[in-house]
Computed example of a mutant assay.
Amino acid sequence: MTLTQLKPEVETIISNTNETVDNRLLSICQLLEQHVPYYNWVGFYFKNGDKDELKLGPYVGAPTDHTIIPFGKGICGQVAVSNKNFVVPDVTAQDNYIACSITVKAEIVIPIFVNGENIGQIDIDSNTPDPFTPEDERFLEFVCQKVSEIL
């Protein structure tokens, strides 16, 4: 399934009001991890109340110890501060990287905005070196925009 073909699937999940928000987010994680071969860990992080930190939300992939990430730390923490997409083709080239698994080679993080405020992000790890294209970025921006509608 191409990224374009996944868009209506994402919209169907988002519009299913019979499911909780967390269940819909988990379903999106599962959809992406199952249908994009180089998406090996897919999860959401959200601002943790009034604290300058992110808290792990629904995800699929290997368990992680990184359930809380301070703003500015790692790729996710940097996106929480910069409010910008962050594509990392090679995680070993990043000084401020939090390793979740030795198998991870690349990462992409896209912020989620609600009323202009960065309230969270989608985080994707890949075991493939440099797999993410501008098409991935646009697709994940679409996913985040759809997710923002239910938050």
Rank of each mutant, 00 (worst) to 15 (best):
E9V: 15
P58L: 03
P58E: 12
Y39P: 03
G57K: 11
S126N: 04
T20A: 06
V79W: 05
T12V: 11
R24S: 09
D136P: 07
R138G: 01
C144I: 03
I150W: 10
V21F: 11
C29K: 03
A80K: 08
V21L: 15
I108H: 02
L6F: 09
Y97L: 05
V87C: 14
K146F: 05
L25C: 03
E33K: 15
V88E: 02
Y59R: 08
V104A: 13
I108N: 00
L140P: 01
N18P: 03
N40F: 13
N18E: 09
K146L: 09
D130G: 10
V10M: 00
I119V: 15
L26S: 11
N18G: 13
Y45I: 01
E33H: 14
T128H: 12
V21N: 14
I14C: 08
L151Y: 04
V88Q: 02
Y59Q: 01
I75Q: 00
T103L: 09
G116A: 13
F139I: 03
L56E: 02
N118E: 05
I75G: 01
N127F: 12
V10S: 00
G116S: 01
V114H: 10
E9L: 15
G116W: 01
Q34E: 15
V10N: 00
S101I: 13
D52V: 03
T12M: 08
D65Q: 10
I102D: 06
E117L: 07
L140Y: 00
L6W: 12
Q145I: 11
F44R: 11
I119L: 07
E9F: 11
A106M: 13
P129F: 12
F139A: 03
L26D: 03
F142S: 01
N96M: 07
D130S: 15
D65H: 13
T2S: 14
V143T: 02
I75K: 09
D65N: 13
I98H: 06
V114N: 08
L31H: 10
F86R: 14
K51F: 12
T133V: 07
S82T: 15
I28Y: 01
V88Y: 04
Q94A: 03
I75H: 05
L56S: 10
K146Y: 04
T103C: 04
Y97F: 15
T67S: 06
S15G: 09
I119W: 03
